[in-house]
């Protein structure tokens, strides 16, 4: 175990920004404080400086009121954990006009630093265009839930895979879009092949999949400068795959605190 302690100097000695985490509702529809406490404790124990969180609704078709409640609850968490927790606004692109107003509210009033989209529409769906343009205008990143599901694809019929990201990357080369959790389940090699040559598509390392060679292949295909550290509910696997990856230390340091994304962190709450 001493070896892990030594390896954790990578985290201890460098700035660590976790770009993919969540807060959740409890069974009463309030902020799940117990979950937040566990998350922040995990961050402290692993020398994580910043947790970028969102609160998405993963199923069905959330109404605008649902979306507002998610973001208000996230804001409560951001205020509860100042200095460590940053927020990304959850948006359902189906409510176009309300979505644009909600992005304004979340960024300008609540101090959030990006937009989180889930699986309600492909990111390449024309309905998302106004929203992408809004994010370009505000210079904020979009984090979109992603994966190529070879098993039970009907469970998430509109989940975006790498090909959807590649399409939108060509339409909006000035947008900054994060393909969520390359290790989040699904055929990550498919997605990696699709986004490798799209310079404005980034990915994060989160997810419970810890395939040996995952981080190495992503770095090889995209370069460390297009990769962000993340955990998405799998904190120890997220840390472990960074320690285990056979890539240069400088690349690990770059992933743990991607320089291209530093400016977003300087904003907001």
């Amino acid at each position: 175990m001493k070896e892990i302690e030594q390896k954790m100097n990578l985290f201890k000695d460098n700035t660590v920004v976790n770009w993919h985490e969540h807060v959740w509702f409890d069974e009463n529809g309030k902020l799940d404080i117990a979950h937040c406490e566990r998350l922040v404790e995990a961050a402290h124990r692993t020398y994580t400086d910043t947790l970028v969180c969102s609160l998405p609704i993963m199923g069905g078709h959330p109404t605008h009121e649902d979306v507002v409640k998610c973001n208000d609850t996230l804001y409560e968490a951001m205020k509860r954990y100042p200095g460590i927790m940053k927020g990304m606004a959850f948006i359902n692109p189906g409510y176009i006009r309300e979505s644009l107003d909600e992005i304004d509210r979340c960024v300008n009033e609540l101090g959030m630093i990006g937009v989180k989209l889930y699986n309600h529409y492909y990111i390449s769906d024309p309905i998302v265009r106004d929203l992408i343009e809004k994010c370009i205008e505000l210079d904020i990143p979009i984090l979109e839930h992603a994966g190529k599901l070879n098993f039970m694809p009907e469970s998430q019929p509109f989940i975006s895979d790498g090909t959807h990201f590649a399409k939108v990357a060509k339409e909006y080369p000035e947008a900054t879009i994060i393909h969520a959790h390359i290790g989040g389940g699904g055929d990550w090699q498919w997605c990696l092949k699709a986004i490798a040559d799209c310079p404005n598509i980034y990915t994060d390392t989160s997810g419970s999949v810890c395939d040996e060679g995952l981080i190495e292949q992503v770095v090889d295909a995209m370069g460390a400068e297009r990769i962000l550290f993340g955990t998405d509910g799998s904190y120890s696997p997220g840390v472990g795959k960074m320690l285990g990856a056979n890539i240069p230390e400088d690349d690990k340091i770059e992933i743990l605190n991607n320089k291209k994304f530093e400016r977003y962190l300087e904003r907001g709450l």
Partner: peptide
């Protein structure tokens, strides 16, 4: 599950487990 998966992902868990050294 090596060599399918990174070994450190499991070592990290044992390292951070809230257990005494005997249990580890």
């Amino acid at each position: 599950v090596a060599p399918f998966q990174y070994v450190d992902t499991q070592l990290v868990k044992l390292h951070y487990a809230k257990l005494d050294d005997d249990d580890k």
